[in-house]
Design a protein around this nucleic acid. Structure first.
Lengths: 208, 208, 208, 208
DNA sequence: AATGAATGAGGATTCATTCAT
DNA sequence: TATGAATGAATCCTCATTCAT
């Protein structure tokens, strides 16, 4: 995996992510800050990247890849659909800063910024599109669940994916926004969301 | 309404929104561009705003208010819940650029940028929080629907709001991302989303 | 004349020329140095010029124009051809630093530098080419001399111009290079050059 | 000859000259470009030269030496003064790129650049001054011509050298500048120049 | 109140040079 | 001896903000 990435490259990625998690605004991040944090010379960064934009875009992309991979591995360890979804929601609750990076990445995609172009380019290179990496995970989970049952139409699948994605994503956004501060609130909401998702899957699948 | 806003103030707001809709990146918008588009002198803008950030934040906030107001008026003209939701989804399909401004506003809230602080400050001044303006609308619609029925617990209300909000928001995001290109695709998705929302409301309300 | 030039523009031109005359290498001149010397803000320079190159190229061009104009006025005050040429050679002896700017300008034209492109562009805008401004002056002087005599062929005229230009130019170059240090040396050389030029004109004109 | 130069040294010289002939601006030449073209490592160049300036200055100096040597050999093969001069003018016409390097070298001498200092230093080491290498050749040719006649005064010799040098040099400059595009134009000019030079030599020598 | 010329702090980027291998 | 990865000083240029008019 990481064989694909050179050490200095990763140092830059981590520096960017750390700075972001510490509250920096990516649009005001400076190359000096990044390289100082990464512990390398300013000029060195330019041996690996064409410019600041590439550093930041790739950093978020890299981080997104790692996060999705971990998430997917965690999901695979769970048996039931309910537990899988619960794992995802819990992970988001527990790893708010890491999740924020993902949200920022998704937001970036709908910026008109040049970071947006970079991210889209990176997704294209991996044959992925837009929210696709998350969508991919959801589709895999749904396919596992469908095992032995009738495959619903593509429209219904797309709807299910959107429905699940939207709930998970917006729950995460609201967590970040500081809603649901108390633990019980989160727990209740998590259960309602999970039940809602499971119920909807059943309903869609039972439509003939 | 607009009595609250001075003409030059509005000129700035419109300039910012126009530039954004034409593809400008808000983080690279310059005061020169904004005032040139607004047709006023650069110095004049500083008579009305403390700085660039305030101009942009308030422009998006103003635009969001106007959009929500229009949306709410449209909703009020519809009778059934299904039609109300359909109206919202259709509006988003038909007014992608305007909707984008709203999405950008929502994204801004989870930036670490100073624009984010400004928006939060503005929301606070209006006693609103986070996604609250949208949430407000949803709550009003739900309350209309609940008329004469048992009020569900606050947790369930919060869940319903999140569920509805998330579907509408993420549908809009995907529209912007270029998914659902064909008209029939959009129509099918719109119906499925609307049915899903209505079904869920019924289910939550029927839980004792 | 100077109505064509704004005060800050001239301030930049003079700063560049002064710095050059003080021994600065134009390729290592910095915008900071130039604007500091001109007594204006760094940013201000960019209100008048697209970049450093334009500042320097236009400065030398402006200086060249002024020098040629003065030279031409001086020439017009002299009666005989001999006195005219003597005036030019003397001027070069007495105003070595100013003359250097002209030489540098001429050298610039055969650089592959971007300054070269700028200068060529400026000459083109004035419908002049290459060494043409100097050539122009020489042609005017020759025409005065020819008054009432047969006009030689264009080839011969071109040759005369080249011959006169080359002697004057290379004498200037050698002066700059520190040759002919003693006053008598200069005087002898000046006389020989002047006689050579006059003799050659006579010879060419007397060829049938 | 080349025993004086190490292979890597020559590789650098040729790289610099090639890049210049291909249109590079010497002031924007980078060490990377030079060493890449020379086919040696960047660090290696620093084993042979103290820095970039030395590389470029010595490259032009080396090239100048080679060119002058070849030119002188060619001149020696010609019998009459007219043919010798014709050979020089023809060589310049036919080898414009090579000649350009010489002109650039001469221009460099009147720069205030550090390259200028290097060139001057190199000339000093060879007991030569300024335009001296070219002057040397001219003096030799003149001495051959004077064989058996009265030696003119040093002033007159200096004048003759300047006169010849200036015509040849400025003709080359104009060739480079794109004047005299047609073959016949060049031929006519060459003849006029050559005749002018020969005539002047005769006149100076016949002055008692 | 309205303006826009002037400003200079700030930051991205380049590239000559070094030095560990 | 040969190398090229790493460095950071140096410099161009942008643009938010001010202030004299």
């Amino acid at each position: 995996m990481n064989k694909d990435y050179l050490p200095k490259e990763i140092a830059i990625y981590q520096a960017v992510i750390e700075l972001f998690e510490e509250g920096a605004d990516i649009n005001n991040l400076t190359v000096s800050e990044i390289t100082a944090r990464a512990g390398i010379g300013k000029g060195t960064a330019y041996e690996y990247f064409s410019g600041k934009e590439e550093m930041i875009a790739k950093a978020f992309f890299y981080n997104g890849e790692m996060f999705c991979r971990q998430l997917y591995e965690g999901i695979c360890n769970e048996k039931t659909l309910y537990d899988k979804i619960n794992f995802v929601l819990l992970t988001m609750e527990q790893q708010v800063p890491r999740a924020n990076c993902i949200f920022r990445l998704i937001h970036m995609l709908s910026d008109n910024s040049s970071l947006s172009s970079w991210i889209k380019e990176l997704l294209r290179k991996k044959n992925l599109f837009g929210e696709a990496p998350a969508e991919d995970v959801i589709r895999k989970v749904l396919n596992d669940e469908l095992n032995g049952r009738d495959m619903p139409s593509e429209e219904k699948m797309a709807y299910l994916v959107l429905s699940i994605y939207s709930k998970v994503f917006c729950y995460g956004m609201m967590l970040k926004g500081g809603r649901f501060e108390q633990t019980e609130q989160k727990e209740t909401m998590r259960k309602l969301l999970n039940m809602g998702i499971c119920r909807e899957i059943e309903e869609i699948l039972s439509m003939q």
